[in-house]
Nucleic acid binder design. Sequence first.
DNA 1: TATATACTTGACTGAAGTAGTAGGTTATTA
DNA 2: TAATAACCTACTACTTCAGTCAAGTATATA
Lengths: 166, 166
Amino acid sequence: MRLTTKGRYAVTAMLDLALHAERGPISLADISKRQDISLSYLEQLFSRLRQSGLVSSVRGPGGGYRLARDTAEICVAEIIDAVNESVDATSCGGNSDCSAGEQCLTHYLWTDLSRQIHGFLNGISLADMVARADVQEVARRQDGRAAEDALDRVAEQKVAIIGGLQ
Amino acid sequence: MRLTTKGRYAVTAMLDLALHAERGPISLADISKRQDISLSYLEQLFSRLRQSGLVSSVRGPGGGYRLARDTAEICVAEIIDAVNESVDATSCGGNSDCSAGEQCLTHYLWTDLSRQIHGFLNGISLADMVARADVQEVARRQDGRAAEDALDRVAEQKVAIIGGLQ
DNA sequence: TATATACTTGACTGAAGTAGTAGGTTATTA
DNA sequence: TAATAACCTACTACTTCAGTCAAGTATATA
């Protein structure tokens, strides 16, 4: 069992998608900026998310990704599964051949733990996350900063134009 | 967060110690045979378990390891901690600096998950494991096989002796 | 229809961790 | 003093992570 940036990034990106769904397709470049995740790395992750049927893509200018299902129908466990991170805590994958072909002493402990984790992550949908106050606050902060950055870019262009006129 | 053979082996070995505590110090060679874990690898793990004060050692012939505390006072979470496997699911270690120095969108999700896992593993002591029927069954099977192996070795010695006499 | 935009794919890489192996030294006891 | 078992150090093959780079392909707009 492992949970690394891979699964965390995937969930974060999917949540970003859920939060900005009303704007139409969201480009990975946008998510990359907002969530501070490498664009190329996001491309890899979304390739898997698309193959798993969690998102659909729209190509061409103005394109991007959108959720394939309602936010209430996508749970965190699915997203982590999609990017190939297993939440299984046993070494045998539940086959009970963990110690010289037979069940190891601690087999049931890991089985119980797996059930515990899976139950927890299965019970949380993107809709649940979107509804949380703390998530909304972070999202507001991130959107605010993105707007500032956009203004900065406009200002820079003005300076460049004025510089060109002189 | 990751849970690999390292943590699993450590818990299994500690449970083996708990199950055979009445025999006095248990050698790593015994555990290695019973649990099918590499002896050298066990040495590495027990070095950490000793440093963490979970086991004490007895050197010399007839020596080995024994639990430093009562089985009811040692929980699974401690053992996994001791061999340096973290059960923390956040990337920031709880520092909330996960996304460009600020809290990431999914911070609370990983914090909750960590609490969940830690609570589960903290609530299970070695005594709880020893008391489980499934654990006792596997232990009986392993002890039975160990006894058979011992008989086999005696038989081999006899053959060797007879061979030497001829 | 040219072109910018955006998604897609594959190969590659440095760093880190896993799961060991090998070969010693030191302490104890029979 | 020989055997036993803990203790210690160094090494290695392998895998995965996290990310980069480069070359594509598809599509909408001007």
